[in-house]
Simulated assay, not measured.
Amino acid sequence: MAISKIAIVVVTYNREMLLRRCIEALRRQHYAWDKLFVINNGSTDGTKAWLDSQDDMEVIHQMNTGGAGGFYSGIKYAVEKNYDYIWVMDDDVMASEDALEQMMLAAELVPDFSFLCSKVNSTDGIIMNVPNIDNTRSKYNYPLWGEYAEHGLIRVSSSTFVSVLINARHVQKAGLPIRDFFIWGDDIDFTNRLSRQAPGYMVGKSKVVHLRSNPSFPSLVTEVDKQRIAMHFYNIRNNIYIGRKHKRRVELMMDTLHYGKIAIASAFTRNGWYKLGVYMKGFWAGLFFNPTIVYPNQKL
């Protein structure tokens, strides 16, 4: 395998201590990477001062544009700087020392790929941030998801930005993450577009731990933090958009029924009427949300 230039992109906001742990884990990687870019989304804690004191990374300070805006900036910058692969993650991800090495070994096994993602566990060892299986079928009409199963690779159609290695050349055709998503779903939409260019794979031997305070799947029904309830507007709006763009009509109809159940269930929980209002606002916005996809080196 030819020597490739590898950039790492970490997006952070007001989590200095977690960011420090994330960066230290990256510094201990067995496989050598070339450049670390940290996108600081307008942090107001000690993050900026600490980042400015580090000399082994390039920092981009910007206003808070959400995780989506951060990954848009970092991936755009790395692609336009001609890095071959871009390893992206949030600031609360702890990569095992061979996480990158295992993904690069996997890269040697497959003829082409658009992205590779790690196996993600919670702090208590439960699998989370599970990617979506790619159900593309072979000429004999069997799903291809297990074509490299003997190597611990599973073919997937989309993944969250919790340790994803992106093949930069496919970003040229797929476009960048949509910054207008703000939070939630930008990674699923982006990797869906990538996997249309070439397969994506989960690398079972590449392992990371996600230090999220609440490892449960995000849900408006179970959300108790009123500030977080308001943020579910983006979750609902963006998922409606993703369904419109990436799913078949029958799947979209099933999703609509599912969202209806969520709306009804939310109404009978604490802050139920407020949740229902957020849901209706997000659902309506998702029907008309049509953000522009930006491509690397595109003049804006």
Rank of each mutant, 00 (worst) to 15 (best):
K139A: 13
I262K: 12
T256A: 15
H30C: 10
G282K: 00
Q54E: 15
Y72L: 08
V164G: 08
Y31L: 11
N271H: 15
T269H: 03
E147Y: 11
E16G: 08
I242S: 06
G66T: 02
W50E: 02
A49K: 12
K226W: 09
T292D: 07
A168Y: 00
V9R: 07
S53G: 09
L18P: 01
F288S: 14
K76T: 10
A25N: 14
V209F: 14
T136K: 12
V250C: 09
K281R: 14
V294R: 11
M17V: 08
E97M: 08
Y140V: 09
K35A: 10
P296Y: 03
R193V: 06
G260L: 12
K81N: 14
I178E: 05
P177V: 08
E97F: 08
L36K: 02
I39V: 14
P111F: 02
M57Y: 04
L116G: 01
T65M: 10
I133D: 08
V9N: 10
K81H: 13
D52K: 12
A149K: 14
T44D: 06
Q54T: 07
D84I: 03
I8L: 15
A25D: 10
R193P: 10
P131N: 03
T44I: 12
H170F: 15
V171D: 01
E251A: 15
L144G: 07
V208N: 03
W87R: 07
L220V: 01
H210K: 09
V250H: 13
G175P: 07
S158N: 13
V79Y: 00
I293A: 00
H170T: 13
V10R: 05
I133K: 10
I133S: 08
H210D: 09
G69L: 01
R193I: 06
D180A: 14
Q62L: 06
N214K: 12
F37T: 06
Y241A: 01
V156I: 13
K76E: 13
R20P: 08
Q197R: 09
Y241K: 00
V224W: 04
K207T: 12
Q54W: 07
R169E: 12
M231A: 14
K205S: 15
Y85G: 10
L116A: 04
Q54G: 08
L36R: 03
K81F: 04
G204Y: 13
D98Q: 10
I240C: 13
G125Y: 04
M128A: 02
G185A: 06
L116C: 02
Y201G: 00
H61G: 00
Q298W: 07
S219P: 02
P131L: 02
G74M: 04
N129F: 09
E24C: 06
H258W: 09
S195F: 01
A32H: 10
S138N: 11
F113A: 01
W50T: 04
I264L: 15
D91P: 03
D91F: 04
T222I: 02
W273S: 09
P291V: 04
G125Q: 01
Y142P: 01
R15D: 08
E24A: 12
R27I: 10
L18Y: 13
G272A: 05
L51W: 02
